[in-house]
Amino acid sequence: MNYNWNWGIFWQAAPGGQGTYAQALLSGLMFTLAVGLLAWIMALILGSIVGTVRTTPSKWAVRIGNGYVELFRNIPLLVQMYMWYFVIPEFLPGPIGSYIKSMPNEPFVTAVICLGFFTSARVAEQVRAGINSLPRGQSMAGTAMGLTPTQTYMKVILPQAFRIIIPPMTSEFLNVIKNSSVALYIGVMELTAQARSMQEFSFQVFEAFSAATLLYVAINVIVLNLMRFIENRTRVPGLIAVGGAKIAGH
């Protein structure tokens, strides 16, 4: 290796006169968190609705839900990013299109929307799987007790399903943060973009990406612990054991 290591590079002034390279990376980190968290909130809400709808008896609702999931799950994220940013504004009526295009933080908003829809399809799939993993007797028991279908979902099915899917949802949460790096292709200066720009200016490529890697690991460790905390706090004694017993041949 013929490489001139320079870990002091982080304390040197980054071009643009807005502080050091370290500050540039931290500002990238903030954008990564902002895009990731907002997209995650959007994905949780949309994904929960679509996932639940896909388990209802209504054939048409199920079909629409399935179409939604396949649409957002089967197109590569990068292609979706380009579609939202470059294609969709051109198809909107003139004034709306130009208003959107002149918004100062348009890349950021577009990135959140795109990542939100993309991740919501994956969340919907988890929610559906969680609901379907419950024994059918649960909803029947709800009906037998005189609960309306909505009450059955709200009070019996969903509370159990959401507890079951916390581990796969942790993966999705980690994914949404990592996937936010795709936003750099539409000009969001998030963590990966800042690392790339740092290496282009200084040519200290290994230092730049080492720092970015460490920051991603740090965020993901926090997310992991947060989700573990939620899992422990919401645990209902005996609930998961019921699932275990079922596998063992009920």
């Binding site: 071009p15 006169g17 890349p107 539409i186 000009g187 200066m189 720009s197 290496q199 200016f201």
Partner: peptide
């Protein structure tokens, strides 16, 4: 993004106080 051009206009915008809204694109075609 990552070009010396972006670096230069950002600096000029700051020092001359030009009030330009500067954005970075991922590559030249973009």
């Amino acid at each position: 993004s990552g070009t010396s051009n972006l670096k230069q206009v950002t600096e000029l915008n700051g020092t001359k106080n030009l009030g330009i809204n500067i954005v970075a694109a991922s590559d030249h075609p973009a």
